[in-house]
């Protein structure tokens, strides 16, 4: 019943429905890219370089004569891969460290001091440094973006665990002689699920954004791979000649981030009615 009502609130507003539709579109783009694309995204055709939109090239071509529309379609794959990869790493390590800090008081201050230190380092610069040492690759970019996100998850999980430690059901479990691991997993961690879903959407959006920034700056995905950041980085030199090279991928990128954030906001309001309409 409760779940139904929540889902009902979740889907009741048309901006959220539009946002979900956009997310579905991006997922469809990524999954069916080879069928949706009209050209090979890496095929160089110098004869048609820097053309505006036409029947053959729906959004025009870039400085190497590659089809912009097909590149944008394939770019969704990189963004979704980076988003999911970063999300997985940040949640796994964040929950692990957060659980250790929130349950075992002796580890708390050590773990949290390390997290404070990581949070003081500008995320983009740390990622840039890691990518420039180990060379650009998809996996390096994912790890580099995930590391600064880990402290945010750790803090969230630790805070929730600390607040439920004194709850009667936890104390009851302790009295019954339940093992610490079972108390943690069965009684305490379920409280973190809803906030993690909300935080997870924001992490996903942030990861898509940072990947684009890193690729734009030349410290991201290898330049030949069509990622939205790389497409924009390629197009910026010719921006004054063909603004579409930057603006089309830019609009798709912005809409994707916007809709993920909107879904995150709606999820937060639905899962925590106290906050609804406030933040």
């Amino acid at each position: 019943m409760v779940a139904q009502t929540k889902l009902g609130t979740f889907l009741s507003s048309w901006p959220t429905r539009l946002a979900l539709l956009m997310i579905v579109i991006v997922i469809v783009m990524a999954v069916f890219a080879p069928w949706l694309a009209t050209h090979d995204p890496r095929f160089l055709d110098p004869a048609v370089r820097l053309r505006g939109p036409s029947a053959a090239h729906w959004l025009g071509t870039d400085s190497y004569g590659r089809d912009l529309y097909s590149r944008i379609i394939f770019g969704s794959r990189v963004s979704l891969l980076v988003g999911s990869g970063v999300l997985a790493i940040a949640i796994v390590f964040g929950v692990l460290f957060g659980a250790l800090a929130g349950y075992f008081r002796s580890l708390d201050s050590l773990i949290m001091r390390i997290m404070d230190g990581v949070m003081a380092i500008p995320a983009i610069l740390l990622a840039i440094a890691m990518v420039s040492v180990s060379g650009s690759s998809l996996s390096t970019v994912i790890v580099a973006i995930a590391i600064p996100e880990i402290p945010r998850v750790t803090r969230l999980v630790r805070g929730i665990l600390l607040s439920v430690r004194g709850e009667p059901y936890v104390e009851a479990a302790v009295t019954l002689g339940t093992s610490p691991a079972a108390i943690l997993v069965r009684h305490m961690l379920p409280n973190t699920v809803a906030p993690l879903i909300v935080q997870g959407t924001y992490i996903f959006a942030a990861a898509v954004l940072i990947e684009a920034i890193l690729s734009f700056l030349g410290a991201g995905i290898p330049p030949e791979v069509p990622s939205w950041g790389n497409i924009i980085a390629d197009g910026r030199t010719y921006f004054q000649l063909l603004p579409g090279l930057v603006l089309y991928p830019g609009i798709v990128l912005s809409l994707t981030i916007l809709t993920i954030n909107m879904v995150g906001d709606t999820a937060r309001d639905a899962l925590d009615p106290k906050l609804a309409g406030r933040a």
Partner: peptide, 25 residues
């Protein structure tokens, strides 16, 4: 509230190029 969600979802370089497109070019 809607404007603020939009504001922090558009990457800074996209905002920058949109502004250049409008006000400079």
């Amino acid at each position: 509230t809607a404007g603020s969600v939009l504001g922090f979802s558009v990457p800074v370089f996209i905002t920058a190029y949109l502004l250049i497109f409008l006000f400079s070019m």
